[in-house]
């Protein structure tokens, strides 16, 4: 028959480190195609971790393995101290997963979907009803009434999906591209909900995204996944420090003005005679900008653009996918 029980785990690898998610040497291939080429990760309890990568980098495969949906070829994973192979049932009893596609029952109403989850989490009836009512309120679904979920908009389905993941109060939550396909407003709403979750409940969140801004907005720690390997790991600020610093881009009204300014800045600047621009190393503080402009004739400057490195730069630098590929 179908296997439902896992043997009680003898040793808890991650128990001693206090990490909510501990991944060592994780590998997975589909045929000849290597999807995960030896991943090591550690996510401290109570933090938000973002796995950032382009389509096909292996993000979903990673989540499926961590959530006990798919088996790895090699490596060890412990979730809240439970080994995913030896004790999958214990892992399942502490996790919640919201995937890329809405995992809702389209025939049931929002409330029925939540109560279904409450029953499957084996919550007492009254607690389930109470928690369901709270989540409907929190996720702005209290007014949708008895209509079935297939009539919902994409954003509503996502919110219901996340609410269903939360009803059993899981300690570790996996969010696989939670805002892919949402419009900007839906994305902002989702971010706000995730932030609130981190503030109010002591949960660990493992998030995958291809949106650099999303990782920057939500996560404490970011790992960049490319072709099945983690190419960088750290806080968003740490990652930004790893790439060339910020600069100001000055556009001049004439070649002579450019010439004069270039002499002034010397080594600090690199010039582009065709575009009449000068790129000068600088950060985005008001003091730096004042210093920058103090030595030159501001009437000869058509405009000033400031650029601080963001995760886009990090991503492009680390994965070698520069603007060249788009052009």
């Amino acid at each position: 028959m179908i296997k439902t029980d896992g043997k009680p785990s003898g040793n808890a690898a991650a128990g001693r480190t206090g990490a909510a998610i501990e991944v060592r040497g994780l590998r997975k291939s589909f045929g000849d195609h290597v999807v995960l080429a030896g991943i090591d990760l550690s996510v401290p309890a109570g933090t938000v971790f973002a796995l950032l990568g382009p389509n096909g980098a292996g993000k979903t495969t990673m989540v499926r393995i961590l959530a006990t949906l798919s088996a790895a070829d090699a490596g060890e994973v412990a979730i809240a101290g439970h080994d995913i192979v030896r004790d999958p049932l214990a892992v399942r009893s502490v996790i919640g997963v919201t995937g890329q596609f809405s995992a809702i029952d389209a025939y049931l109403s929002a409330e029925e979907n939540l109560l279904l989850m409450a029953d499957l989490w084996h919550l007492p009836r009254r607690a389930g009803r109470q928690r369901s009512a709270e989540l409907l309120e929190l996720f702005d679904l209290a007014g949708v009434g008895p209509r079935p979920a297939f009539t919902f908009s994409g954003g509503m389905q996502r919110r219901l999906d996340l609410a269903m993941t939360l009803i059993g109060a899981p300690r570790v939550i996996f969010l696989d591209e939670p805002t892919t396909g949402l419009d900007p407003r839906g994305r902002r709403t989702m971010w706000e909900l995730i932030r609130r979750l981190v503030r109010t409940e002591a949960v660990t969140i493992f998030l995958t995204t291809q949106y650099l801004e999303e990782a920057d907005q939500l996560a404490g720690l970011v790992a960049v996944l490319d072709h099945g390997a983690v190419v960088a790991q750290g806080t968003a600020a740490e990652l930004k420090r790893r790439i060339p610093g910020g600069h100001a881009l000055l556009t001049f009204t004439s070649a002579s003005a450019l010439e004069a300014a270039a002499r002034q800045f010397g080594d600090r600047a690199s010039r582009n005679d065709e575009a009449l621009t000068l790129q000068v190393a600088s950060d985005d503080s008001a003091r730096s900008v004042q210093d920058l402009l103090a030595g030159i004739d501001v009437d000869a400057v058509r405009h000033v653009a400031l650029h601080t490195p963001d995760l886009d730069d990090v991503f492009l630098t680390l994965t070698g996918q520069t603007g060249k590929e788009q052009s």
Binding site: I2, K3, T4, T68, L69, G96, V97, D105, D161, M164
Partner: peptide, 16 residues
């Protein structure tokens, strides 16, 4: 083919 089966599979339920 919908996502719900994967949700059930990530829960500590009696799968049969």
């Amino acid at each position: 083919t919908a996502g719900i089966i994967d949700r059930f599979r990530t829960m500590a339920i009696f799968r049969p």
